[in-house]
Nucleic acid binder design. Structure first.
Length: 568
RNA sequence: CACCCCCUAGCUCAGCUGGUUAGAGCAUCUCACUUUUAAUGAGAGGGUCCUGGGUUCGAGCCCCAGGGGGGUGACCA
């Protein structure tokens, strides 16, 4: 493995620590009794503390040094004085271990006393120093100046996502985003369990990918010799549980959809699904309002958030607009009573591209998506979707052309989707059959018929309202992020290609001495074939040039020696 | 999948019209320094210019192909 200069220095320091009898990766637990942020917040001088964390910076001034120690809560300055740390004759711990062998990024434990420096910085005077973990790779050197401006920030998205561990260490705001994510989920879970609803787990591997319109990932079960799908939704399973007699069930469901990736889509994402018996979608709107307000308070302490420079107000109630009115307002088109032909004409007038496979529902969805969606910045419920685009939703109580469904839009993005659930088994069967006809027309996202689900409905499901909330997107809204990758710890990326090191053993098999083999490889001859094909004179010249340039402590090569390698 | 942009030291980035030995700040190493905080001062080392071809007397720069990433569109939540 080829190491950078800085890595080689650190490996050498590691070896020297061992020579001094210091285990750079000790086994015993370290008895931490204080953390940086709470300590600084309620600072009192003269307190004995035992802390552990990562050294983020060092300022060495001869016999005294300052360093920043970062733990899970934040950073605190530590002060190391040679004679405080090493009161006896032996100053090795300070002079050699701290000053020479430790680096930025190393994890240490310290015991000491709190005090305030001349410049007023809350600090810890270190009296004991323990190496807890030596780091081999240098961290990016992010610095913040007096005005709070960040210099040399670690910003490359590729590196940040691939090495999230580094991102979290050097970019504190990233850590706060994921703490906020956890708070949002916790607030939702508490709100449900307080009301007696049950958190459940349903299958991720499904024989029929149901409950949504999307392309699934497919896999295969060997023992059963059947295809299985990673779930695109868990809706149909949760409804089976309502049939079974639970009043309220919910699941934070990791769903998988084999579709495009962009700043609002990741192949796997998290939806909170909640189903509550004997309720309808009006009740659900109020429930969602309260839920989002609570989630916002959990993150911000109030119901206001900022997103991409715009204030978003999560204070209930939210505006409610029917889909018909939304389209009427933004396009002048009244979809009420319009047939497929009329809709196609309207799309043509509005310059919206459509495909032959699209039915009424998809056409209306296109118009809304193109002309209306982006207008809804503040949380807004769009209600009463056309029946064709909602095969699992109860028909509207006043007009069977529409359904009792709403979606919640924030900042022009769909965040939640909810229905008065269709519980009429005859109607549900007919709706599935409509989907089959769409599939026959070429709609590859039309739903499959789930016979077992229909059987469950035939046993009787109480009137139920259900909602799915896009957790990743909600977290984006609440943490001022415009990319889903910023709220997923490990967003999906193409696998990284690790350049495998040269096969030094194969080179040595040609007769190349072990001490020369890595240099031969580094000079560009990293396979036996490349050595054998080389002209001995040219190879010798190149390697001796390499030797000189890199000041290798090896005798210059003779032509006879090189000829034995190439077999010439 | 289409179009546009990016890939240079550990990190952030310069690098002109193709022209000497590819630069800067931070980081690293050596020395000095007992209250600093983007510590300071002096000195030094560090490069597969993403990869592979091509054009050229000469390529980090131009051309072709490939890889990775970002943005926009399409699809979707």
């Amino acid at each position: 493995m080829i190491r950078s200069e800085q890595e080689r220095v650190r490996l050498e320091s590691l070896a020297q620590l061992r020579q001094l009898g210091i285990d750079p990766y000790p086994a015993p637990a370290y008895p931490v009794d204080a953390h940086a942020a709470p300590l600084a917040a309620a600072f009192e001088e003269g307190k004995e503390v035992c802390m552990a964390g990562r050294i983020l910076s060092r300022r060495i001034m001869g016999k005294a040094s300052f360093a920043e120690l970062q733990d899970s809560t934040g950073r605190i300055q530590i002060y190391l004085n040679r004679d405080e740390l090493c009161p006896g004759e032996d100053k090795t711990l300070y002079n050699t271990v701290f000053k020479k062998l430790l680096d930025r990024g190393d994890i240490v434990g310290i015991k000491g006393t709190t005090f305030t420096t001349q410049t007023g910085e809350s600090s810890v005077l270190v009296t004991e120093l323990t190496v807890l973990s030596k780091s081999i790779r240098p961290l990016p050197s992010v610095k913040t100046d007096e005005e709070g401006k960040v210099h040399d920030a670690f910003t490359d998205p590729e590196l940040r996502y691939r090495m999230r561990y580094v991102d979290l260490v050097v970019n504190p705001a990233v850590k706060r985003t994921f703490e906020a994510r956890s708070k949002v989920i916790q607030a939702m879970r508490e709100s449900f369990t307080e009301r007696g609803w049950l958190e459940v787990d349903t299958p991720v591997l499904q024989p029929i990918p149901g409950g949504a319109a999307a392309r699934p990932f497919i896999t295969h079960h060997n023992a059963l010799d059947i295809p299985l799908y990673l779930r695109i939704a868990n809706e149909l399973y949760l409804k089976r549980l309502i049939v079974g007699g639970f009043d309220g069930v919910f699941e934070f469901s990791r769903n998988f959809r084999n579709e495009g990736m962009d700043r609002t889509h990741n192949p796997e994402f998290t939806i909170l699904e909640l189903y509550v018996a004997y309720q309808d979608y009006h009740w659900m709107m109020e429930t969602v309002e309260e839920l989002l307000a609570r989630a916002c308070r959990a993150v911000h302490g109030n119901t206001k958030a900022t997103l991409a420079g715009r204030d978003i107000d999560f204070t209930p109630p939210y505006k409610r607009v029917t889909m018909r009115d939304a389209i009427l307002e933004h396009t002048g088109v009244d979809i009420d009573g319009m047939d497929e032909f009329g809709l196609r004409e309207a799309c043509a007038r509005l310059d919206i591209e459509v495909e032959d496979a699209m039915g009424k529902g998809k056409l209306i969805d296109e118009i809304f998506g193109e002309c209306c969606e982006h207008h809804y910045v503040q949380p807004t419920f769009i209600t009463d979707y056309p029946v064709e685009m909602s095969p699992l939703t109860k028909a509207h109580r006043d007009n069977p052309e529409y359904t009792e469904r709403f979606e919640l839009f924030i900042n022009g993005t769909e965040v939640a989707n909810a229905y008065s659930e269709l519980n009429d088994p005859i109607d549900q069967r007919a709706r599935f059959e409509d989907q089959v006809r769409l599939a026959e027309r070429g709609d590859d996202e039309a739903m499959f018929i789930d016979q077992d689900f229909l059987r469950a409905l035939e046993y009787g499901m109480p009137p139920t309202s259900g909602v799915g909330i896009g957790v990743d997107r909600l977290v984006m809204m609440l943490t001022d992020q415009t990319s889903i990758q910023e709220v997923l710890l490990f967003p999906q990326m193409r696998p990284e290609v690790f350049r495998s090191g040269p096969d030094l053993g194969a080179l040595e098999a040609l007769g190349i001495p072990a001490e020369w083999a890595p240099h031969v490889a580094a000079a560009g001859f990293d396979t036996p074939e490349s050595v054998r094909e080389a002209k001995p004179a040219a190879l010798r010249e190149k390697l001796n040039g390499f030797r000189k340039k890199n000041k290798l402590d090896l005798p210059a090569l003779q032509i006879e020696e090189v000829e034995t390698w190439t077999g010439a």
